[in-house]
Amino acid sequence: MSTIFSKKLKDYRKELETKHQEKFGQVRLANELGISKGIIGDLERGTRLPSKKVLIKLVEHSGKSINYWMDGIEEYEAPNSVDLVLDKMIEKGLIKDINIDDDAWEIIKKAVLLEIERKLK
């Protein structure tokens, strides 16, 4: 049962090798995801499909969507960290109007810096 997923997982490890400029084997990825190397091997061979738990770990680790992993859809824009932070701050009542205190601005500043870093990658 060869799948789009198995190819995407192999490609992802190659991306990680390029990013880290060193070998990024199945054992290392398994350790970072908190799963066994055997699961990674089975997934890459296409002899098993990922569980929901493994899929969620890959989404979080890679910043790529479930659609990317399962359907091969390349076009994915990770959620904007600034939007997520602002939504959460409004939800928690930390921002009630345009008069934002210094502590809230510091949180927003960190979110903007994270977004800049993400876009530069």
Rank of each mutant, 00 (worst) to 15 (best):
I98R: 07
L114K: 14
W69C: 01
L29Q: 11
N67T: 03
N80S: 15
K88V: 06
K19S: 01
G72H: 09
L55Y: 10
E17W: 01
E60D: 15
M70D: 06
I116A: 12
G34A: 11
L114Q: 15
A78V: 13
L94A: 04
R28K: 15
P79A: 11
V85Y: 02
S62L: 11
A111H: 00
M89Y: 02
L113F: 06
I4P: 06
Y12A: 00
V59Q: 11
I98C: 04
L43C: 07
V85N: 06
L29F: 15
S81M: 14
V27I: 14
V112M: 13
V54L: 00
I35Q: 15
K52N: 10
E44S: 13
K53N: 14
Q21K: 10
F5T: 01
K109M: 13
L49S: 12
I40P: 03
L29M: 15
T3D: 13
A78Q: 14
E15K: 08
D87R: 14
E117G: 00
N31S: 08
N67S: 11
I90S: 01
D103E: 04
L114S: 14
D42L: 15
R118D: 10
I40K: 02
W105C: 02
L94W: 01
L33M: 05
D87E: 13
K23C: 00
I40E: 08
L84N: 07
K64G: 00
V82L: 12
I116C: 14
A30I: 07
K52D: 10
P79Y: 07
E17L: 01
Y68C: 07
V27M: 09
Q26V: 05
M1E: 14
K57S: 08
G34K: 13
G72E: 10
K14I: 02
K57N: 03
P79F: 11
R28P: 09
L114V: 13
E60F: 13
R13Y: 05
W69D: 08
K8Y: 08
G63E: 11
A104L: 05
N31Y: 04
